[in-house]
Structure formats: structure tokens, C-alpha cells
């Protein structure tokens, strides 16, 4: 798959734009790994500035969220099954199967529960992540 189809990730960019309007101190882009280290429809965990990030590559693009499952309290979200619910790209926690919207981090099964989503892009075959700051 070419990087052109992977580079868009419009949803995660939009998320960051909303979360940090005019924030001058947002963190830098960190290169993580070559794109071919990400299997389609599967996640991996990465360490970005000491933060455990879950990276997913799906047919809808790249996504990045916290790796911490906020319900189970373990760092496992990257190992969940990727899919869709009603057209929304999702990952299901491998611990107790709560489903999260990959583009916003919102839990679709438990109101009020969410994980942070991070910015992710592909440049010259390298996957890069920019952390979203704490709310």
C-alpha cells in the first residue's frame, strides 16, 4: 500500500486541532517505525517520550491512542481487535471487549469513558506520532 493512501488521517488531525487551538507548546513529531512494521488491521505499542501509545493501521488510515485500557487498568489496547461499528473505525479492548472509537478515543460502550487519541502521520515511509497534551 502506498503512503499516499495512509498519509491522510484526516480524523486524527482534526481531533488535535480541536483539542489544542493555538497552543504554541504542543509536542514535536516523533518518528516511531517504518510503515511496514504495522500490519493492516492490527495494532502495536510504542514508547513516545515515555508514554505508551497504541498505533493502528487500518484501511481507514493510521490511528494512535493511549495504550492504557482505562477500564482494566492494563497497557493492552494495542492488542485489541480492530474493526468498525456503524461506519466508525474501532478497537475492542482485549481484556473486557469495550469498544473505542479510534478517531476520537471515545468508548462506545461506556458513557463518559475515553482514551486520549494522538496525532499520527506517515512521512517518507516512516510513521510519526505527536502526543496530545493532557487535557
Amino acid at each position: 500500500m502506498s503512503t499516499a493512501t495512509m498519509g491522510g488521517t484526516p480524523m486524527s488531525t482534526a481531533t488535535v486541532g480541536i483539542a489544542q487551538p493555538g497552543n504554541a507548546t504542543r509536542s514535536r513529531w516523533t518518528p516511531v517505525c517504518p510503515l511496514d512494521r504495522l500490519d493492516l488491521d492490527r495494532g502495536v505499542a510504542a514508547l513516545v517520550d515515555g508514554v505508551q501509545v497504541a498505533l493502528f493501521r487500518t484501511a481507514d488510515g493510521l490511528f494512535a491512542t493511549d495504550n492504557l485500557d482505562p477500564v482494566g487498568g492494563a497497557y493492552v489496547l494495542s492488542r485489541g481487535i480492530v474493526g468498525s461499528r456503524g461506519g466508525v473505525p474501532t478497537v475492542a479492548s482485549p481484556l473486557h471487549k469495550q469498544v473505542y472509537d479510534l478517531s476520537t478515543g471515545r468508548c462506545l460502550d461506556l458513557p463518559g469513558v475515553a482514551v486520549r487519541s494522538h496525532e499520527v502521520r506517515c512521512r517518507d515511509g516512516l510513521v510519526e506520532v505527536r502526543l496530545r497534551q493532557e487535557g
Partner: peptide, 10 residues
Amino acid sequence: RGRGCDICKP
């Protein structure tokens, strides 16, 4: 239809 989920994929 769609992309599948944690029910149908396994």
C-alpha cells in the same frame, strides 16, 4: 459489510 469486529473476526 463494514470492517468486521471482535465478534465476527475471531
